[in-house]
Amino acid sequence: MFDIEVGSALVMGLILGGVILISAWLIWLERRLLGVWQDRLGPNRVGPLGLGQVIADMFKIFTKEDWVPPFADKLVFMVAPPIIMICILLSFAVIPIAPNVGIIDLNIGLLWILAMASLAAYSVMLGGLASNNKYALLGSLRAAAQMVSYEVFMGISLLGVVMLSGTFNLREIVESQRDGWYILPQFFAFIVFAIASVAESHRLPFDLPEAEQEIVAGFHTEYSGMKFGMFFVGEYIGVLLASALMTVLFFGGWLPPFGIGPEDSIVAGIFWMLLKTMVFVCFFVLMRAAIPRPRYDQLMSYGWLVLLPLSLINLLITGAVILFQGA
């Protein structure tokens, strides 16, 4: 039972625990990094370097009153927050962490992630709709349109990688990058995917569903206590998932850069995977610190008029090159 292989109980437990623990501490990481980039300190009081801040916040959020507004649709109001947690945690099932480390090698791995991402969108929409509050409704309206639109380019941008590797299986996609990472041939796909995944996880600069200056707190206006906590942690797990996906699809997953060190060692694999993922997490935070939020129509027209043609042209050229090389 305690062997390191795909889908063993030990590996599953470690991945689940690791993902939740890392995402919780991402909140601390984000606040400290924002502090650095905005020339202030950030949380540094609780424990060494302020690391205990997350634990303190968790105690606070667990002891808060769990309130359901009397005017809300109670069933849907309570169902909405767990959806995002469950769907995004399920997505991690197909992410290959290192050789022999992963939960399942699904032959439709990439489609599985797209499916879970599109189901996770319901969390935000239903939460806002069930709150029966006009600001929450505005927030979830924005979320619905934004997520449906950006899902399209996210899917199309990934197809270039699928064409090059010839599979939807994420582990095989990593294996096929031994001769060179896909970031070079699929550079534009990476750009589109990075932007679309920011929009999908509705983080700044694309956090229009919860734009606090305009619509109070958007879809989670009526939420408090642990229900709000689930939306909040769900967002950070989403960031971790998007970063892990960028690593796996475009930056060779667990493969070491420039052939440094052993190729198929589990420890080195986990190290490289974590390092690369964390770089992208920091990039997400930098985006938040550096870029202001666009207007809603700018977000939409940017998506449909720039990203959609870009991803389609990328797909066309990739297909042409593969056809030319094969002939």
């Binding site: 439709i108 489609l111 599985w112 797209l114 499916a115 991402a117 599109s118 189901l119 969108a121 319901y122 929409m125 239903l126 709709l129 409704l137 979830s140 309206l141 619905a144 349109a145 997520m147 449906v148 899902e151 899917g155």
Partner: peptide, 23 residues
């Protein structure tokens, strides 16, 4: 493959549009 498309296209996209109209 059909199972994945069922979730992505029907549950993930078309139902979202239904919800959008309801909102």
């Amino acid at each position: 493959f059909a199972a994945a498309l069922e979730v992505i296209v029907y549950a993930g996209a078309i139902m979202v549009l239904f919800l959008f109209v309801m909102m």
